[in-house]
Amino acid sequence: MIVVENVYYTYPNGVEALKGVSLRIKDGEFVAIMGENGAGKTTLVLHLNGLLKPTKGRVLVDGVDTREVSVAQLSRKVGLVFQNPDSQFFCSTVEEEIAFALKNFGFSQEVIEKRITWALNLMNLKQYRHRSPFTLSGGEKKRVALAAVLAWDPQILILDEPTIGQDYRQKEKLRQFILQLNSQGRTVIIVTHDVEFVADCVPAPRVVLMAGGRVIADGDAEEVLTNPELVKKASLIQPQISQVFQELADLGLPRNVLNVYEARRIILERWRGR
């Protein structure tokens, strides 16, 4: 379990990025942290694996205060995939990139070999094993970054803006993959402002909405993302389906609909019963 207790964080340049954030994330939850650029989303998740330590307040991961353990120790449990894969890479081949953390965690050579092969296959990267990660396309780099973290099988997986620069097909795969990891019991936290990506997730995640360094809403996606005031405050736009149902609320249709298949079910029911 992750417990964030009244956390404030001020960057060395004086920018106060978090202003009293409190949050509890239980094991096995699927959470989307959403909000406009500059809302503090990335700053918050950098606290969860100890890369940043609170200026005030505290963060506990499975009961351990992040100030009392090293990033290396926390990372074994909490895997973070950065928004920009370039900030994660430094090896000359994809294979070395994936092996790096495994070596540091002290896995045997035999296990390392197996894990690399497993992660490459999983992310459809087999053919790039000996390529430099820097020569790959944006979407491929993202997959390498994800493979490198998945290889050590962290219990908690954090993905910062995983859909940026990804085309439709890659997003579909990513969504299925995230849902699968979560259904296997891992905690999955995504940072995103891609409302349609979240609206397509079944089951929908819990949404933590941030603005100006604070959490302004925390609840089911169906409640948070269909609330026009909240969505506007976070500089997001309601998913299209939610906009449609808001317009039709006077016909007695529910307002809290996000998903296109759910929308079809409700519309057909109404149409047939008319």
Binding site: D167, Y168, R169, E196, P239, Q240, I241, V244, V260, L268
Partner: peptide, 15 residues
């Protein structure tokens, strides 16, 4: 082709 359609078109098609 790896391109999605906008959500309201998808709804139109499903209906």
């Amino acid at each position: 082709l790896g391109v999605g359609v906008v959500k309201v078109v998808k709804l139109y098609q499903l209906l």
